[in-house]
Amino acid sequence: MQSEKDNISSYIIQSQEQELKRIALELHEGVGQTLYSLYTGMQLIEGTVDKSMKGYMKDMTQLLEKTIQEVRLLAVELHPPTLTTLGLLSAMKTYLKLYTSTYGIEVDFHVSGDEVELGEKERITLFRVCQEALVNIAIHADTMKATITLVWETEKIFISISDSGKGFEVETAMKQSTGLASMIERMDLIGGSCIIASKPQEGTSIEFSLPL
């Protein structure tokens, strides 16, 4: 019965990922490219208008630039293109740059060991749980700094994400947050583990481990 439930959950997640990949591509190739064309056009116009309009044009150009950044982050959040082509590490680096520029949270990213090629399901899962943890920090932790440690070992990959923010009572949060439960379920479906440790005013640490 449990195996059947896991198969259904895995199928649902796979279907969702395929749809997210399609939407991300449309955002990047469609909306993103259109906005960038508008942005370059606005820059050209800005240099030709009189002084009374320059301030307005500059504000519009900056707004477009901010919108392009937000669309890029959304596309990467939905499905980072480098995750398929270059692997987990490259996808994480790309995401963290956009994450910091969007949320203003500096992330210390430490990596040790030699990267091991992972299957698509494992790559997507590890990226998603890291993404969930980082978004939670941005929304709930009330901090401007986070730390990620990624360790490639012979028999497993280990990822730790921590912050020194507000923290929370884990037992209470597990009953209220589908995001926390989702991280645990996703890791369980690929044979990994997720350990969440937190206390109010003492920050949060989340550890992911996956046998290789």
Rank of each mutant, 00 (worst) to 15 (best):
E120F: 02
M183E: 10
G87Q: 01
F109M: 10
I157M: 10
C194F: 00
L44Q: 13
P211V: 02
R123D: 09
T204I: 00
P200C: 14
L73Y: 15
D108L: 15
L64D: 06
E185M: 13
E106G: 10
C130F: 08
A75K: 02
Q33I: 09
I12S: 07
K93G: 00
S198P: 04
E29Y: 07
A91N: 10
K66N: 10
K66D: 10
T67G: 08
C194A: 00
T204C: 01
Q16V: 06
T94P: 01
V135Y: 09
Y95G: 10
K175V: 00
R72G: 07
F208I: 03
T40S: 06
E120P: 05
E106H: 14
S52C: 06
P200Q: 13
K97A: 10
K93E: 10
D108P: 00
M92D: 05
I196L: 09
S205T: 15
G203K: 11
S15K: 06
S90F: 00
E117Y: 09
Y56H: 08
E185L: 14
D59W: 07
L180R: 10
E46Q: 02
L134V: 00
Q62G: 08
E17H: 13
Q131W: 02
A138T: 00
E65W: 03
T85K: 15
L44T: 02
K199G: 06
G87Y: 01
V107Q: 12
E155Q: 14
I45G: 02
H28V: 07
I195P: 00
E155V: 12
V31Q: 05
T147E: 13
M187I: 01
G104N: 03
I148A: 01
K54M: 02
L210H: 02
G55V: 02
T204D: 04
E65F: 06
Y39V: 00
